[in-house]
Design a protein around this nucleic acid. Structure first.
Lengths: 218, 218
DNA sequence: AATTGTGAAATTGTTCACAGCA
DNA sequence: TGCTGTGAACAATTTCACAATT
């Protein structure tokens, strides 16, 4: 019996695991039964060694000389990422971004099921979005427990985000996906991911501004 | 006269530059005139050494014993990130995500001005979104040149994304912000950033699944 | 006294290269 | 032979620690 060993898995490895999962879904549809680290790497613009190293953190899934079994590997990565179950998600804020997310099909496809949507705007409460009634923030505590919500998406203006986050934590939500461009203060057992779309555009802007390897004066 | 020296700036440094910029905007509103690396770090959950190292890649902006001048530092970082100008942006795809982005105020605030929106759905072409008429994809080439578009946002289904990207490149667009969860193949002088919202949710799902430091069997 | 700017050290992440196995 | 799994080498990034400066 091998000794189970805890290793530190880096953020980038997890990120790439998602890429592998995505690529494997495509490969599966193309009816390949095995795939080499070389081919998998090519599809996501990585190196074969990187692919093998990443996977090796979680076990030995491949066969030497042959490659990895597509279906099995996809299932195992899904397991590691927690994608082989349905997650119950609450969405707070039905503005531009919030409305878009309710209808975002990729979420459902990956097992993220938005079960509740909240807003504090009286004009929005009670209205229908893709078959879901917008609930009042006042009901958050009760409904989050009732519907066994696992994670929440914050899509409210920056001003309101911290207070919404506090309410969610109080209601027992353990994982938050935040679209407001602020740094939320949360107890450290709460898992937080931020999505700041401006940041990515600023990266483009940086790259365009500094094209041609412009040096910065010292 | 110091010799101008080209250094390799890492992705993460650029990313953090955006965070500093955001924090400085807040600090500026709070009427502080100087800020230390310690305080700046605290506001974005980083370390003081990290802040100083990042900034030092671009010059010496601070005063020993005092800290950094808030307004001046913000201006300089804005300059580096290319935020002190208006960027002309074209948006392709007026589905859920696309519509949300047209109205996304943060973009405008940071100088990203969506001037054109495109779709290939006849029912959407000609319709109004925030004062902009949805144009036919067929007019892309002409309009992109006329309006001096700097960058484009792709918010179409995965199936269509590569072909849209090709059209954009042909029209002369040099920077692309892609929301479709696929790996676009582009000439290497084109700057590409991807926004994959599922990836971040999967990260939450991973963290929740593997809470409590669960080891993976070997 | 306080805080920057920066080489050097420590740490983390990636690639190499090859033994081991189908 | 072909390809995985992995320790060792290498590269990149972060943190430390302290001289320099106001």
């Amino acid at each position: 019996m091998g000794k189970a060993e805890t290793r530190k898995i880096s953020e980038s490895t997890i990120y790439r695991l998602s890429l592998y999962y995505r690529a494997l879904a495509v490969v599966e549809k193309e009816n390949y039964t095995t795939i080499s680290s070389k081919e998998l790497a090519k599809r996501e613009k990585l190196t074969p060694a990187q692919v093998r190293k990443d996977l090796s953190f979680f076990g030995s899934f491949g066969t030497r000389g042959l490659g990895y079994p597509v279906v099995e590997l996809k299932r195992r990565i899904g397991e590691i990422l927690g994608l082989n179950k349905i997650w119950n998600v609450a969405l707070v804020g039905v503005g531009n971004i919030g409305s878009a997310l309710v209808s975002y099909k990729e979420f459902v496809r990956q097992g993220f099921n938005i079960k509740l949507i909240f807003d504090n705007d009286q004009r929005k409460i009670g209205s229908n979005h893709k078959g879901l009634k917008v609930a009042d923030m006042k009901e958050l505590n009760k409904l989050v427990a009732e519907e066994k919500i696992d994670m929440a998406i914050i899509a409210v203006p920056s001003m309101a985000a911290q207070s919404v986050a506090d309410d969610l934590v109080k209601a027992g939500v353990k994982a938050i996906f935040n679209f407001a461009p602020i740094n939320l203060k949360l107890p450290k057992d709460i898992i937080l991911r931020n999505q700041n779309m401006c940041l990515e555009l600023e990266h483009l802007s940086f790259a365009m501004t500094n094209m041609g390897n412009k040096p910065w004066s010292k």
